[in-house]
Nucleic acid binder design. Sequence first.
DNA 1: CCACAACACGAACGGTCGTGCTACATTTTC
DNA 2: GAAAATGTAGCACGACCGTTCGTGTTGTGG
Lengths: 234, 234
Amino acid sequence: MPPAEDLETLARAEPAVAADEADGRRRRGNRTRESILQAAADLASVEGLVGLSIGRLAAELEMSKSGLFAHFGSKEELQLATIDAARRRFVEHVVKPSRSLPRGRARLEALTNDWLAYFRSEQFAGGCFFHTVKAEFDSRPDNAVREVVMEDVRQFLGLLAREVRKAQEAGDLDPAVEPEQLALALDALGAAANQQFQLMQDPVVFDRAATAIRARLDSVAAQLSDGTTIHSTR
Amino acid sequence: MPPAEDLETLARAEPAVAADEADGRRRRGNRTRESILQAAADLASVEGLVGLSIGRLAAELEMSKSGLFAHFGSKEELQLATIDAARRRFVEHVVKPSRSLPRGRARLEALTNDWLAYFRSEQFAGGCFFHTVKAEFDSRPDNAVREVVMEDVRQFLGLLAREVRKAQEAGDLDPAVEPEQLALALDALGAAANQQFQLMQDPVVFDRAATAIRARLDSVAAQLSDGTTIHSTR
DNA sequence: CCACAACACGAACGGTCGTGCTACATTTTC
DNA sequence: GAAAATGTAGCACGACCGTTCGTGTTGTGG
């Protein structure tokens, strides 16, 4: 598999177990491998990908360290495979659901709402996997994991910016706004909500974040010919 | 020292080495201790407070592991002391400078600008110390370090909210806005800028963040009696 | 100048880390 | 059903972890 596929391409793939059964029949080891990766993603969302230890992971899955290790050959391979698994989970919960909606502000807003819901429901044991891993690798130069994570971040920011642009083309948002600028603001609010929720355990931050996002979108809503503006759909 | 002092109280303390020479003469060990903590804060801003290892820190300072260890007695004590040192650095660069300005939007904007400048100048080797540590401990329940970090986060959010409120009282911002709501938005933008700068190494994010902050403040600027609004000071 | 803290050091402990290697069990393939 | 491939376990390794201890070294007050 090439270093990192496009997020939207991934969203079009089959339901859940995608990397599996791609070539012929599903073997036993692949099922084990997949369950390892799911547990690894959860553990890493708490301890980080560096803090993720093979012994601890093996104990959690009630299998031997060496048996688990044999699936990957090195810790770095395990880290990279874990990111792949986590990305699939992220796409499933955040990217995919809103893809069926028509382009425009409603879809953009659905995307951000799904994103916030994904934080709130704690799909990963320790909050968003990528939040933890981003912070862990953001200042480790010359690291293969870092490059992959960075590419994923770039992909998601790109996705947000593209959706903004589509909403502009649909006539919902002011076309004078720089999509990247708005994408940064949306990304910032989501990340901050997840962070504060993990730290304070108070879900009220999601209301605040949703409010802030809607306010931000309202503030750049396109003027209709009758002088009114399109406001939030809820 | 009580668990965590107020940020603004800290900002009023003597210049740099505050914890030092409090009781009488400055001994040799205290100087060593301080230099250890400065190095520890830098190292932890990259590796985290868990990843921070005593052996590695000792090697960097060209002293023995046991000699260094003796200053703290346990790793957790070292972690807590490192947070104290990092907090002093943060206060010095972010909280303190704008305190001399009169209350109002200008002061709030100076605070956020100093904050962004602090990110940009990389006062810590791996970006903002607290960003790394927050992410590291945000999902580790029943941890003493986590509690301290959480309190610091709360303090900073509180500071932002207070400055918003003062700007409202000064007539610069719309008093109908919830200070906590605006504080969240400002915090989110700053954190996102630091994060993306660390990851992408592109300082353009600071311009975007500054723009977004100014836009946000403009959008809640109080209406003057002549119908105009107070805009950014730059 | 001496005594006594305070400070720093080296060696070693029990643990855990990632990583090999070898042997056994289980599938899959012919 | 034998052969080949695959998956898992056991054990050992060197490196590093936090921590302890005994012993020097150093600086300072009487």
